[in-house]
Design a protein around this nucleic acid. Sequence first.
DNA 1: TAAAAATATAATAATATTTGAATATATTGT
DNA 2: ACAATATATTCAAATATTATTATATTTTTA
Lengths: 113, 113
Amino acid sequence: MRSIGKRIELLKVVAHPVRIKILEELTKGVKCVSDFEEFLEISQPNVSQHLSLLRRFGVIDYYVDGRLRCYFLKDPIVPDIIKLLNRDYYEELPAPACCPVTKKGKYPGQKRR
Amino acid sequence: MRSIGKRIELLKVVAHPVRIKILEELTKGVKCVSDFEEFLEISQPNVSQHLSLLRRFGVIDYYVDGRLRCYFLKDPIVPDIIKLLNRDYYEELPAPACCPVTKKGKYPGQKRR
DNA sequence: TAAAAATATAATAATATTTGAATATATTGT
DNA sequence: ACAATATATTCAAATATTATTATATTTTTA
């Protein structure tokens, strides 16, 4: 069971536009590096770097097939993060329950200008 | 409705140990800056900096009570992110379904050494 | 066995994030 | 009006992240 610190690190590693695209693609199935090169519009070394970062954090793993590397998802939190990212939220959170809530002050005072 | 880019930015802003602590605290109720100072072990200006970053991204907001600022959660994705972070995962994802899945290669080959 | 293909690694440069220190602002109480 | 309190802002230094370029490694194929 991962520490809270590790979980936050993981979240940070995942929170990058290219890496999210990679992971979304991997939720659909196995992909090799050149598959990614096609639809991400970045250089091959950059793809490799993102993949290797994700691997270093245990997010993904791969099988070797000749000169190909077939990457796949490993960390079970990933599909949940992706679902969360695609969920739509229409309303702000409701204002907190009223009056002296903080230790020193009372809520609500004036709305910030 | 937020673009996917904005959602990822949001995730990145949230993925920081101090800011997660702030947000976890705010899920329990309204807090003012000096409340945070007590249990985060960082300087007052640094608390303010994190709060102001979170505010800039619309994650939190505040009411003014005299010289206090009573902060509260605003973005509805936050409680879901926190739940996700605290969820326990015991198993790795199952290996993907077998054989020719990538465009060019076959999966699985040899497991990486 | 040499060339080509697929991918990785290393070094660097550009940029962004984080913190700390000093200072500023606003509000209350005297 | 002045001092004290609560908080914010600004600037700079330290550090981390990202992308680019060049090069290396591994495997297959000719």
